[in-house]
Simulated scan of single mutants.
Amino acid sequence: MHRPAQRVGRAPRLTRILVSAAAVPVVLAAAGCSSDSGSGSGSGSSADNAAQKGTAATSSASPSTSADAVKPAAYATLPAPCSVFSKKTLGELVPKGLKSAKSGKSDDAKDRSSCSWNSLDNKGVKGSQFRWLNVSLLRFDSDATRGEGNQLAQTYYDKQVKDAQTVTGATGARSEPVSGIGDASTAVRYGLKKKEGSFKQQTVVTRVENVVVTLDYNGAGLAGDKAPSADDLTKAAEKAAKEAVAAVASANQDGSRATTAPSQSASPSKSASPSKSASPSASASSKPSASASATKKN
């Protein structure tokens, strides 16, 4: 009777051992499932990481793609303004003023420049012939914020044409596009009466790539002399404008062309500032009076 009691007493212990042993695979299985689940989560994270890296790569590429979208300015410099015309051309437009060249003031000659000439052919009692010639050049850089140099130049070109078409006191104004000069060219002509005489003004505005050339040429018959032909003056002005455009291209043949990187500055460059470059357009309205003062000096 005593031994059976002992067996009965050991039975719960054996049962606990068996239950514990049976529980081990369950724990291991659970651990395996947990491990598999973790592995699956890990592979998903890798995929997410790869996607994030791809997004980051795309994001980092975006700025460079945006910058590349702004083309560099075609022309990086300007010619010396007082040397854009040949001696022959000056002899035709300002025959008595070959040595009268006067360069305009500029804080940066590669971005803005100008030069003027005046000629007075005094024939005594037979009267006098007066001529005045001015060329202004303005260059625009490409800018990541403001746009390409060509577009900025086109905007300024349009403004110059409009200014020439709306000069106060102009009479008989007419304008027409000119073919064969730069990428866009317009000739504007009109008359202006001053106390010294009747002046005939010709303004030829031309855009070539990122440069705007504004050529002003006026003439008058003074002291009773016959007024010059507006057609002849316009033809001469257009010829001179074409020569000025060729000088711009020639000044950039040393490798400056198409090598200027787009500016990253958010502020307008000095060369593109309309306020500082207003003098060429503003001078269109004041040229006859300027030429009149030159006449007085002579």
Results as ranks from 00 to 15, higher is better:
23 A>S: 10
96 K>S: 07
209 E>T: 13
296 K>C: 02
235 K>F: 00
151 Q>D: 15
138 L>V: 15
203 T>L: 15
115 C>Q: 06
169 G>T: 08
14 L>T: 10
296 K>Q: 00
223 A>F: 11
116 S>I: 04
128 S>N: 06
193 K>Y: 09
250 S>P: 11
277 S>M: 03
283 S>H: 07
275 S>P: 05
140 F>C: 04
62 S>A: 14
165 Q>H: 06
8 V>R: 13
213 V>R: 03
239 K>D: 07
133 L>G: 02
178 V>T: 04
81 P>F: 02
252 N>W: 07
143 D>L: 10
206 T>I: 00
133 L>C: 03
244 A>V: 08
100 S>I: 07
15 T>W: 04
111 D>M: 11
266 A>V: 15
65 T>M: 13
197 G>F: 08
63 P>T: 10
119 S>V: 10
150 N>M: 02
274 P>R: 06
93 L>I: 13
212 V>S: 08
281 S>V: 09
73 A>E: 05
234 T>G: 07
244 A>R: 00
117 W>L: 09
87 K>T: 14
223 A>D: 06
100 S>Q: 14
185 S>T: 13
227 A>K: 00
128 S>C: 05
62 S>R: 03
224 G>N: 07
53 K>Y: 08
119 S>R: 01
252 N>A: 11
31 A>W: 15
120 L>D: 00
239 K>L: 04
124 G>L: 05
129 Q>V: 08
13 R>N: 04
204 V>Y: 06
100 S>G: 03
178 V>P: 09
283 S>E: 10
239 K>M: 03
114 S>F: 02
78 L>S: 04
257 R>W: 12
267 S>A: 15
291 S>L: 11
118 N>P: 00
152 L>K: 12
244 A>P: 09
83 S>E: 14
263 S>H: 06
290 A>D: 07
87 K>V: 12
117 W>R: 06
216 D>T: 01
140 F>R: 00
118 N>D: 10
150 N>D: 12
28 L>C: 08
106 S>W: 11
281 S>A: 14
278 A>Y: 09
152 L>I: 04
157 Y>L: 15
154 Q>F: 02
